[in-house]
Design a protein around this nucleic acid. Sequence first.
DNA 1: CAAGAAATCCAAAGCGCTTTGGCTAGCCCA
DNA 2: TGGGCTAGCCAAAGCGCTTTGGATTTCTTG
Lengths: 340, 340
Amino acid sequence: MNLKQLSHMLSLSQTTVSRALNGYPEVSEETRRRVMDAAKRHGYRPNPSARRLATGKAGMIGYVMPTGASVDIDPHFVEFLSGLGDYARTHDLDLVLSPTTADDEETTYRRIVANKQVDAVYVSSPRAADRRVALLNHLAIPFIVHGRTEGLDFEYPYLDIDNETAFQEAARLLVQLGHRRIALINGDDTQTFAIHRERGVRRALATFDLALPDHLRHSVAMTEENGYRAARRLLEHSEAPTAIICSSLIMSLGVVRAIRDLGLTIPADVSLIAHDDVFPWLTPENFSVPLSTTRSSIRAAGARVAERLAARISGLETGVRGEIWPVDLVVRGSIAGAPG
Amino acid sequence: MNLKQLSHMLSLSQTTVSRALNGYPEVSEETRRRVMDAAKRHGYRPNPSARRLATGKAGMIGYVMPTGASVDIDPHFVEFLSGLGDYARTHDLDLVLSPTTADDEETTYRRIVANKQVDAVYVSSPRAADRRVALLNHLAIPFIVHGRTEGLDFEYPYLDIDNETAFQEAARLLVQLGHRRIALINGDDTQTFAIHRERGVRRALATFDLALPDHLRHSVAMTEENGYRAARRLLEHSEAPTAIICSSLIMSLGVVRAIRDLGLTIPADVSLIAHDDVFPWLTPENFSVPLSTTRSSIRAAGARVAERLAARISGLETGVRGEIWPVDLVVRGSIAGAPG
DNA sequence: CAAGAAATCCAAAGCGCTTTGGCTAGCCCA
DNA sequence: TGGGCTAGCCAAAGCGCTTTGGATTTCTTG
């Protein structure tokens, strides 16, 4: 069933049917009702390719997905996607993933924009001076960054969580509990979130005239194994920390293992706080010692990004508003006063 | 730069240029070279919407993604996606995710097929008599199922791993080590992979005149917490198992925690084998006691599915070939002879 | 050397939709 | 009563590509 057939069976022109369906005013209410009715009854669905060709609107939002043998899409992505999909579904938006290598990233963005394959894109895991943001800004396609850049000289729309304050609060709490040597096991610090988290920790420590020396600071890809290694390095050091702040729940699995391997206990020997993105399959309450966390649902962020993307597509949202979500600090059994 | 402009600047017709670009024979080699050259030099890229409208080919593969507040996309998905994307990238295929609710699943499939939004789709996590498979078969769009159904009365193309043999081998090994009470902590057993795994275990046990009584069998969503709960239930039972086979690495995190909580040790008190889908961020070698696993890379499966999908799209693969991958059984420290 | 066969190329017709630029009929008001 | 509006509808021109059905030229071949 296409427009032609539908309009023919209604004895109306394609123009009128099209307008009736798309809510244009130059069609009488009665006709519109009649058209709507017939469309529904016959299950008419405008062909998206045709519509896209005619309008340039795609009804899709895009994500340029880095791939490659050595590239791991991180598990956060799927949670984000859950949220995004959940919103997109209610607005008839599909999501197109364009796989690319790091080298071809720019080309890929240019392609999907030039081809009008998508109406908007979202960017994740931004780096400090992320070139993608400047590129998208220049290409003038609606976009939202999940996260932020650092030190770019223009504004753009983003959604981020307040990593700095979160980690600042976490560090402050540990200091107030008497800890003096506090370590940070961070994610890859070319990414902004890691920069912000480190800054938060440093800021809190500075308030108490403490510092974050190099040996108390690790920046690694967020895997269980890396968490383990970093923790071992930390705890076997002559000036081992009494508390560790860890950028991810997955890494903290390794941290816990390292602590146990060394015959230490949480929180008696070492306190631990991790960041929790709220995975359904791994919850901090269920660690052997319930884990204190800074918590923010990455899924909720996905839904919100989709919502704002939809708003930008339809012109409801304009401007460059950045949105920063506060982060919960949830205290559980994994922290205690510094050991004697 | 569009076809018209390009052909005009070459003083050729659109027809010829189009044919030259798409490798049709009715154009001289010299002309083809000239066209190819100009196209590359001017960065000409055919508009996909137009091409799609004209040909009905989309250059995309589709995935209908179940979403909803209570629906968790499982973390395996992202690994699968990595593999899929890695292959798709090299073949200029994009992937479109169409979010849907369970209720609208069929409608969504019908829509993407009717609209020719995608050239092929893949289906994951099939259930025993999965309706999607019959539907796609009927809609006559190229598709591949990652996994299998059970008891459907027609053939279809799929890629699966040999879950049954894998778990059979795992169980057999445990029996040969002297274990008599072997438990299975399985995933949701409406899904075929779980059915196959249970069958494998039962088959191995039957060989030795052993059985899998209800109290030694759990079927739950694959989260850490569920693994913990199941293991507690098992081990606190009067007839506790001396060995556990577990359907996922994530669940086995919980299993290990439960074992430790109960003051038991691996493998002295209880042996443990889990299935490993090969996540980059969680590896069985790095469990406190290195975990024996049945192993199969879900990422490799993703790449293979993409490859076959591409082949089906271009007509290189036809028929209903099912492909079943063998699964490695990797022995590490988590298994030993039965206690006592 | 003429006729049939290739080899090349082209004009134009879609693909299914949106949108521009009318056209017509009914209404109001002077 | 007639001119100007407006409401409501339509024909047709794209959007940028592929593909059908020739047309023209060149090559074979008996």
